[in-house]
C-alpha cells in the first residue's frame, strides 16, 4: 500500500509540528496548509487520502474549506475544534465532515480517529454487508442482528436506526443526519424520538444499557456505533 497522504489545515506552528511528527511516525505523509486558500488549492493539487481541518483559521472560517472541498473531495475529513463548541461540531458534521477532535487531544485519540475514518472509507468502497462489533453481528444484506450468536428481534424503526449507524460504523452521526436517515427528510427537530429508540436499542443490544459499549452518545452532537474488533 502506498504512503497515506494527510492534508493538515492548521495555523498554529506548534500543533502543525506535532501533527507532522505524529503522522510521519506512523509512516504517513503530512501536507501543511495554513490558510483557507492554501487548503483548497493543496487539496485539489495533492488529492490527499484524508484532511485534518482546524475550524479556527486566521483568514476565514475553516467551515468554508469544508464546504469548498466537499464539492469534489470524497475522502474523509476530520475537523479539529475547540471544546464547548458543540454547534460548530454539529454544523461541520452536517456539512460533510466525518468526525471531530476537540482540542486538546492526545496522539492516541488522533490516530484512533484517523484509523476509523480511513477504515470506513475503505468500507464504503468494498461494501462488506456484515458489520461486527463486540458480540454484535449486523448483516446489512439479510437485515438480521445477532447478539452473542442469538438473533435479536428489532422493530422496523429500531432496525433502520441501527442500519444507519452500522453503515457508518465508527463514524459520528449527528441527530439531524440520523433523523433524516430513519424518518426521512422533514423529521426535523424531533430528537426526542431518537433518544427513545436509541434507549430501546440499547436495552436490546447492550449488556449494561447505562454503560453502553456499542451504541455511544457524544453529548450535544450525536451518536456512533463503536468500532471494536470482534471478540
Amino acid at each position: 500500500m502506498s504512503q497515506l497522504r494527510v492534508l493538515v489545515v492548521e495555523d498554529d506552528p506548534s500543533l502543525v509540528q506535532l501533527l507532522r511528527a505524529t503522522l510521519e511516525g506512523q509512516g504517513m505523509q503530512s501536507i501543511d496548509a495554513r490558510t483557507v486558500a492554501d487548503a483548497v488549492s493543496l487539496c485539489r493539487s495533492h488529492n490527499p487520502d484524508l484532511v485534518l481541518l482546524d475550524l479556527g483559521l486566521p483568514d476565514r472560517d475553516g467551515m468554508e474549506v469544508l464546504r469548498e472541498i466537499r464539492r469534489w473531495f470524497t475522502r474523509p475529513v476530520i475537523v479539529l475544534s475547540a471544546r464547548r463548541k458543540e454547534d460548530d461540531k454539529v454544523q461541520a458534521l452536517d456539512e460533510g465532515a466525518d468526525d471531530y477532535l476537540a482540542k486538546p487531544f492526545g496522539a492516541q485519540e488522533l490516530l484512533a480517529r484517523l484509523r476509523v475514518a480511513l477504515r470506513h472509507d475503505i468500507r464504503r468502497t468494498t461494501d462488506d454487508p456484515v458489520v461486527v462489533v463486540g458480540t454484535l453481528r449486523i448483516d446489512l444484506s439479510a437485515r438480521t442482528v445477532h447478539r452473542g450468536g442469538v438473533q435479536v428481534h428489532l422493530t422496523p424503526i429500531e432496525y433502520r436506526l441501527l442500519d444507519a449507524l452500522a453503515r457508518s460504523q465508527g463514524r459520528l452521526l449527528t441527530k439531524a443526519q440520523l433523523l433524516a436517515e430513519v424518518w426521512g427528510p422533514g423529521a426535523g427537530e424531533q430528537a426526542h424520538y431518537l433518544r427513545i429508540y436509541m434507549s430501546q436499542l440499547r436495552h436490546k443490544l447492550e449488556e449494561e444499557p447505562a454503560n453502553p459499549r456499542y451504541l455511544l452518545t457524544e453529548s450535544g452532537v450525536g451518536y456512533r456505533l463503536a468500532s471494536l474488533e470482534a471478540g
Binding site: A191, H192, R195, S199, A210, N211, P212, L216, T217, G220
Partner: peptide, 17 residues
C-alpha cells in the same frame, strides 16, 4: 442551559464512557 428531555440512563452512560 439547553434543556431537552433526556433519558437519565443515556447521560450517565455517556459520562461513564
Amino acid at each position: 442551559p439547553r434543556l431537552e428531555w433526556q433519558p437519565i440512563e443515556e447521560v450517565v452512560g455517556s459520562a461513564r464512557a
